[in-house]
């Protein structure tokens, strides 16, 4: 395979990543509508999200196959190798994001309304916006190979964790005020947890960008 053709293949892989990322971004928007827009046709939106998740799964398989073939026939080295390894890792992260977004949509579809939940829902909306931005930024960082933006995403993950803690605290207060809300509150805790995990996956993608650009593996460094 010529270098030109190999570069074309790499660009195709990046386009597939962009398509998967676009799906995740849309799923989060639609999940947000399910949870926060009272007039939304929740069932219809849920079906759209489910179809997107199926599309992501099929893109994941396709990408995995292409990466496997390129590794086998091209024996890439240096940045080419790091690029394919990053694409493989990002592929997995995006597929997980798709699963998590579908789970959020499912929980959102079944939510019951109550005035007591207003503060928690406000926090949850703030978290969803924050996570959506992390997803957009990590994908931009990946596509544009922008290490600085990737490092900003990694920093943003702490705020996502804090927001989740805040939501859990608010929901505990709700339960103490009205125990009948326990099921709904648990669903909302679930939504916050899934959002936090999407944030973690966005962080993973950002770490892949740093690896792609520098060759350094910075995973788990903030835990030390």
């Amino acid at each position: 395979m010529s270098v030109k053709l190999f570069d074309e293949r790499l660009n195709e892989l990046k386009s597939l990543i962009a398509s998967m990322g676009g799906c995740v971004e849309q799923m989060l928007k639609e999940a947000s509508m399910i949870i926060f827009q009272k007039q939304a046709d929740k069932e219809k939106l849920y079906r759209v999200i489910r179809d997107r998740e199926i599309e992501i799964d099929s893109l994941q398989v396709k990408l995995g196959k292409y990466c496997f073939r390129l590794l086998a026939v091209q024996s890439p080295v240096a940045k080419d190798l790091r690029m394919i390894l990053s694409i493989i890792a990002t592929n997995t992260s995006l597929e997980r994001m798709g699963d998590l977004s579908l789970n959020i949509a499912k929980r959102g579809r079944d939510l019951k309304e109550d005035p007591l939940l207003e503060t928690s829902l406000h926090c949850l909306e703030e978290m969803l916006i924050h996570i959506s931005l992390m997803v957009v930024d990590c994908l931009d960082a990946f596509i544009n190979e922008d290490e600085n933006l990737a490092r900003q995403v990694i920093i943003q993950d702490r705020k996502a964790d804090d927001l989740k803690e805040k939501i859990c605290f608010e929901l505990k207060s709700c339960i103490l005020k009205n125990t009948k809300l326990i099921d709904t509150c648990l669903q909302l805790v679930g939504v916050a947890e899934k959002l936090e995990r999407i944030g973690d996956q966005a962080t993973n993608i950002a770490e892949e960008v740093v690896f792609l650009q520098t060759g350094m593996d910075i995973k788990h460094q903030q835990q030390k």
Binding site: L81, R82, G215
Partner: peptide
């Protein structure tokens, strides 16, 4: 082969 120091090395091996 994973992170060459010099851009000329990178260009050559890729």
């Amino acid at each position: 082969f994973t992170k060459p120091k010099h851009s000329k090395s990178e260009d050559y091996i890729t």
